[in-house]
C-alpha cells in the first residue's frame, strides 16, 4: 500500500514540471501586434506629401446629411496642421492610441472642434432644428496609403481621409468643388390659380445663395430660389468626371412649402467652365398657386 504511495509521489515528481506553454496563434504578443498596427497607421498618416482631405459626415441628422471638408497634414512629431474653408492654418496635436480599437485622437483644439464647441464662431452645428454631432476622437477602421476610414467614437460621426493633391491645402474650395456661394439671377412667375393661365405675378430673383456639400459624394444642397427660408431647397448632383449636373431634386424644406407631388423639374443644364447652373422648375404652392421658377447660378 505504502509502496503505491511512493510510486505515485515518484510519478508526480516527473510530471510536476510539465509546462504547457500555450502556443499563440500569432507569432507576436498582442502588445507587439498593436504596436505594429499603430506604427503602420502612423507611417501612412505622415507619408502623404500634400496631406489629406478629410471629409466628415456628422451624426444626429435624419435626412439631407451635410458633409464638411477639412485639410490636414500630419507629421511624425504628433503635430497636425489643419484648414477649414478660408480660416488660417491651425497647428495642433494628435495622437494614435490603442483603446478598444486603434484610435486617432485630435487631442488639442482643431477646426473639427468647432462643430462641437457651443461658442464656436466658425460654423454652427445646428441644421434646421437638429444638431449635428461631431467628434475629435476617432476609431480607425481601415487604412491604405490613399484613404483612411474613421468612425467618431462618441458623437458617431463618420470621416474619411483621402490623400490630397498639391493644391488642396491652399485652395479650400477644391475640397468640395461645387459648394460655396452662388450669385443667383432669375425670376419666378406665379399665377393666381393652380394652372398657368392669366397674367402671372413676376418676382425677380437676384441674390446670393449658399450651397453646402452633402454626405453623398458630388452632391450639394442649395438655398431655395424665391423664399426667404433657411435651409437647402434643391439637391443637385454632379458627374464627378465632367462636373456637369446630372440630377436635381427638391429638398425636404421645399417639399414642405409646396403641394405634395406638385414639384416638377422642367429643365436644367450646367457649364462647368463658367461654373454656371441653369434651373427651371414648377410647383403649386400652399396658396394653391402655380409657380414657375427659373434661375441662373454662378459660383463665385
Amino acid at each position: 500500500m505504502k509502496r503505491y504511495l511512493l510510486y505515485i509521489l515518484l510519478l508526480l515528481t516527473f510530471f510536476s514540471c510539465g509546462k504547457n506553454k500555450d502556443d499563440s496563434v500569432f507569432p507576436e504578443t498582442p502588445d507587439q501586434r498593436i504596436e505594429k498596427v499603430l506604427k503602420d497607421y502612423a507611417a501612412k498618416l505622415t507619408a502623404a506629401p500634400y496631406g489629406w482631405k478629410m471629409k466628415v459626415i456628422p451624426a444626429g441628422i435624419s435626412s439631407e446629411v451635410r458633409s464638411y471638408y477639412f485639410w490636414m497634414r500630419f507629421n511624425d512629431g504628433n503635430r497636425v496642421i489643419s484648414r477649414l474653408d478660408n480660416e488660417k492654418p491651425l497647428e495642433s496635436s494628435y495622437r494614435l492610441k490603442a483603446l478598444q480599437r486603434p484610435e486617432l485622437i485630435f487631442d488639442t483644439y482643431t477646426y473639427l472642434d468647432d462643430g462641437i464647441d457651443p461658442v464656436s464662431a466658425i460654423f454652427s452645428a445646428y441644421f434646421g432644428s437638429e444638431v449635428e454631432l461631431f467628434d475629435f476622437e476617432f476609431e480607425i477602421i481601415s487604412a491604405t496609403t490613399d484613404s483612411i476610414i474613421l468612425n467618431g467614437k462618441y458623437g458617431g460621426s463618420k470621416a474619411i481621409l483621402l490623400r490630397a493633391a498639391p493644391t488642396d491645402s491652399t485652395n479650400s474650395s477644391m475640397l468640395a468643388p461645387h459648394a460655396g456661394t452662388y450669385n443667383a439671377v432669375g425670376r419666378a412667375l406665379c399665377y393666381s390659380g393652380p394652372e398657368p393661365v392669366g397674367v402671372p405675378d413676376i418676382i425677380s430673383i437676384a441674390r446670393r445663395k449658399v450651397a453646402v456639400p452633402l454626405a453623398e459624394d458630388n452632391s450639394i444642397l442649395l438655398d431655395f430660389s424665391n423664399k426667404e427660408i433657411f435651409g437647402g431647397m434643391y439637391r443637385i448632383t454632379f458627374d464627378p468626371g465632367t462636373n456637369k449636373v446630372t440630377a436635381v431634386a427638391p429638398g425636404r424644406f421645399l417639399k414642405k412649402e409646396v403641394r405634395p407631388d406638385s414639384f416638377k423639374m422642367l429643365t436644367f443644364s450646367s457649364d462647368p467652365v463658367l461654373k454656371q447652373i441653369y434651373l427651371k422648375s414648377s410647383y403649386i404652392n400652399l396658396d394653391n398657386q402655380y409657380c414657375e421658377v427659373e434661375e441662373t447660378l454662378t459660383l463665385k
Binding site: D31, L38, N78, R95, L96, K97, A98, I105
Partner: peptide, 9 residues
C-alpha cells in the same frame, strides 16, 4: 507599451 498612447514627442 507604446500602443497605450501615453507618449508623444
Amino acid at each position: 507599451l507604446n500602443g497605450l498612447g501615453g507618449t508623444w514627442k
